[in-house]
Design a binder for these strands. Sequence first.
DNA 1: CGATCTTACGGGATTCGTAAACATA
DNA 2: TATGTTTACGAATCCCGTAAGATCG
Lengths: 302, 302
Amino acid sequence: MNINSHDLQVFLTLAQEKNFTRAAARCGLSQSAFSTRISSLEHALGAKLFDRTTRRVELTPDGEEFEPFAHQLHADLSDVVQIFRDRAARRRGRVAIAALPSVSAGWMPKVLSQFAKRHPEIQLSLTDGIAETCASLVRSGEVDFGLSTLDDAEDLDKQLVAIDHFHLVCGKNHALLTKKKITAADIASFPFIHLTRNSSVRRLLDAAFDRVKLKPYLEANYMATLAGMVEADLGVTIVPSLSLHQFIRPTLGTRVLQTPRISRPIYLIRRRGRTLSAAADTLFNQIRLTDFENSPMRRRRS
Amino acid sequence: MNINSHDLQVFLTLAQEKNFTRAAARCGLSQSAFSTRISSLEHALGAKLFDRTTRRVELTPDGEEFEPFAHQLHADLSDVVQIFRDRAARRRGRVAIAALPSVSAGWMPKVLSQFAKRHPEIQLSLTDGIAETCASLVRSGEVDFGLSTLDDAEDLDKQLVAIDHFHLVCGKNHALLTKKKITAADIASFPFIHLTRNSSVRRLLDAAFDRVKLKPYLEANYMATLAGMVEADLGVTIVPSLSLHQFIRPTLGTRVLQTPRISRPIYLIRRRGRTLSAAADTLFNQIRLTDFENSPMRRRRS
DNA sequence: CGATCTTACGGGATTCGTAAACATA
DNA sequence: TATGTTTACGAATCCCGTAAGATCG
C-alpha cells in the first residue's frame, strides 16, 4: 500500500518495454523480482495493470489510466530529490545575509562577486542595516547570518572575523595632518561632523571621546554627506576603515587613528544551534576565512 | 535514496509536532524507528531537515524548503492510490460500450439506468452502431466491450447473452394475422418494407428468404421509417424483438415468426485475454446475468 | 537529573536471486 | 517446443522495537 519511486520506475519501464525480461534488465533486477514488484504494485492499487501472456504484455485500461499518474509522480519525486542534491552540491539555493551599511558597501561587493563567480546558480540577497536590524533579521531567521558589530546577544552565535579601525578624515591640507601624533584633544579642537546617533559608529565615537568632548558641528545620516561636509572644510570626522572608500578624494586626507585608537569588531552572527543551508554555509565559511592581507582591516580568526 | 509515502508522512508529522516522541506515536512507530527514518530521509536528500536538541526540534532552512514539496508529494501519492481504490470499489470510473442500434434502443436504456442507480459515480458511454462498427470499436479498445451479433471474429471473445427472435409487423387488420400459421410464402406474397442492406437484420432476412424471394417495396435506414410505411399499409416487414417497441401502435399488429423461425444471437463481445476495468466488469456481468423472464427474447447463459 | 534524541543490536518482515514449474503461440 | 512469466525457496537486506547511551536545559 506504500508506493515508492522505484515501483513507479518499474511500472514505467514495463509499460514502455512491454516485456518483463528486458524491463527487468533495464531496472537492474532479476526477472522474478521484477515480476513480484509489478504484482505487488497491482495489489497495492487494487487493480490489474498489465495483461500478460508469455507472448505479449499489454496495459489494461487501469494500467493505461495509471501511466500518466506514474509519470507525473515519478518526475515529481525525482525533481525534489534532485533539487536537494543540487542544494547540497551548491548548484542551487539561496543565501540571505544582513550586514552593516559600511560592511555592505565596503566589503560585501568583493565577497559576493567572488561567491557568485564560484556558485553562479545560487541566489544572493543582502540587506544593509544598522546593528540592531542585523541582529533582528538573524534572530527571526529572515537572513541566514549577519555581519555586524554586536554588543551582547547571548541567543546569537558570534565569530569575530575582522577588526575595523577608525580613521580621521579632514581636508587634504588640514593642520591635523601635519602633526606627528594626533591626540583626542587635537581632534576635539576642530568642528566635528557627526553621523546620526543611532549608528554604531556614532556610539563608538561618543564612548571614545567621553572625556575630551568633540565639538559637534552637525550630524548626517549618510557617509556621503559627511564626505561633502568635510570636503567643504566645515569640519573633520572619523570613520571606520570599511567606509574609507567614500572618502578617497583628491581634496581629502585620511589618517588611521593611533593615540585614541578606536576600532570595532565585525562578527559573523547566526542563530545558535541552527544548521545553515549548504549554500549559506559555503558563504559563511568564505567570509570567515577571508584573508585581509592587503586590507585596512586586521585579520582575525576566532 | 528512495522516498516513499510513509517517509513523507513521518517528515510532515515531525514538522508539525516538533517532538519525536509525540510524532512517532502519531505515526504508530517506536521513537527510535521514527528517528532512524528521519535520519535516513535526511541522508537520501543530502540535507539536514531538523535541528534538534533534547529540548527543541526545529526545521532547518532545508527542512523549511522541503515541507511544501513533502506536502504536495504526499497528497499526490495518496490521491492516486485513492483513485484506484475507488475504481476497484466501483465508486469511480468510466465504461464505454458499443451496441447494435436495436440493442441500444430496446435494451440498454433499462440496463444502463439500473447500473447508473447502483454506481452513480461511474461515467457511462454508449455508442450505437452496426455490427461491424461494434466489432471495430471493441477491437481498437475504444470501448470496453460490445453487444452485437457476430459472424466470426476469432480475435474477439464472445458470450451469447440473448437470442433475438424476429417478428412480422403489418397493419392491425392485415390478412396475414388471421392465418394460424404464417409461412415464408405467405409473407412473400405481400410487398415488403426492407431495412438498408448494410444492417445485420437485412442480411439475416435475405438469408432466410433465399428460396422464397420477398417482394421488396422499398428500403429505409431507420426502424421508425419502416413503422410509418407499414402503418400506411405500403407493405409488411420483419423486425427483431429488440426493435418491436417501435412498432407497438394501435394501427399495427405483430406476431412472432414461427415457421420461418428467424432469430439472431446477441453476444457480449470483448478483446480476448484483456482484463476489463472493475467498472466495465461490473456492467459486463450485469448484462451477462440479465434475466429475460418477461422479455420477448429468450434468456441464454453461456 | 530528568526529559528526549541517538545508537546498538537481535528478531521479523520484505525483497532479492536462482531454479524449477507453468503457460502460450 | 521455444520463449517468457510465475511460483518456490533459501539468502541477503531492510526495518522495527527494546534497551542502553548520549546530550541538553
